[in-house]
Design a binder for these strands. Sequence first.
DNA 1: TGACAAACATACAGCATGTATGTATAGTGT
DNA 2: ACACTATACATACATGCTGTATGTTTGTCA
Lengths: 200, 200
Amino acid sequence: MPTKRPTTKPEQRAATIAKLIAVARVQFAEHGYAHAATEQIVQLAGVTRGALYHYFDSKEGLFRAVVAEIQRDLAQRIISATESISDPWQQLLVGCRAFLSASLDRDIQRIGLLDGPAILGWEAWRKLDAENSMRLLESSIQQLADSSIIAPASVTAATHLLSGAMNEAVLWIAQAAEPQQALEATIVVLEQLLRGLRQD
Amino acid sequence: MPTKRPTTKPEQRAATIAKLIAVARVQFAEHGYAHAATEQIVQLAGVTRGALYHYFDSKEGLFRAVVAEIQRDLAQRIISATESISDPWQQLLVGCRAFLSASLDRDIQRIGLLDGPAILGWEAWRKLDAENSMRLLESSIQQLADSSIIAPASVTAATHLLSGAMNEAVLWIAQAAEPQQALEATIVVLEQLLRGLRQD
DNA sequence: TGACAAACATACAGCATGTATGTATAGTGT
DNA sequence: ACACTATACATACATGCTGTATGTTTGTCA
């Protein structure tokens, strides 16, 4: 019988790191970064703070890892929803919908949208976002521009505006009395706004 | 000679509160909420932490007061820029430009846009925003809709999308290599997007 | 198989918030 | 004019949390 529980060092390392990140994700989402105590996190992970500081240089470092994981998850969900769509315009709209739906998770909102920028700083946070979901948005817009379907004065500016619009929309939808209705309204208005970028 | 320095109680009260808020605004902007020590704030304000906790229930309470002040300042600047404009469409555009320009202040970015939502929670922060700059945006959009100049599927959704778009745009513009250029590009794209809401 | 380093655990120092309590002074009634 | 009260603070302390320094166990590899 092979490893009952991981006993080799690389395995142990990976397991502990993964456990810490998983537990931290829940704690950060539940209490927010500031009120999530590292002691509580390591207890729930079955280790001590010594382990935490062995793998991460600080509480913020652990948080950064959690944010990165969340960003990757989110991007993956968008990719899954859009990869089978060929029409670029539809792809953008479906991508936007996927982003809005996926972001209704409390984890993503609290960690990815609220605490993320405040704790990591806007530039560091934006960098993580730019490597994931924002990258998808930008390439989608770029593709539409290349195909002369839309003609934004600046692809970069358009990407930031739309990204910000959706980040705010997510938080609004999440606390709306009727989220489903709010989500549909958001998508319709988003489509209207995008229409303005179209070539006439 | 009247009051050399304020000696009456209401005066003292107002003076101390104002001083604390003013100093706190600088400290919060410079170091961020988490790394701004109350001890440092009260020292620079010429009082002790006893005074702070006499007027505010917590550090967060002081922060809330600072955010409220910033929101009022921002709204006032937008009003000043737009009050003389009668055409509602131009009023909206000028208002957006005023918002983007004014928000280039580090105070507003760090306190109003980054730490604000994270510390106060999105709903509380949104409430403060909704009473100020967002209210201006919404009434402007509502007016255009009432005049049948635009026809957004939902005024509320449109307001949130545009508000979020600009909040993000501000942070992007601020750190852009050429902020002035980024600002102009943003406004042009914003205008394009708004065109999509127009009645055809 | 014994040295060596990784993977933790433990103990401690430092700082920051919040609270409890003390004190001086403006206001107020008589 | 004087005692009294409440406001406007100051001081002292308890608590909680992060980060660091150091100790201990256990794979790994020559």
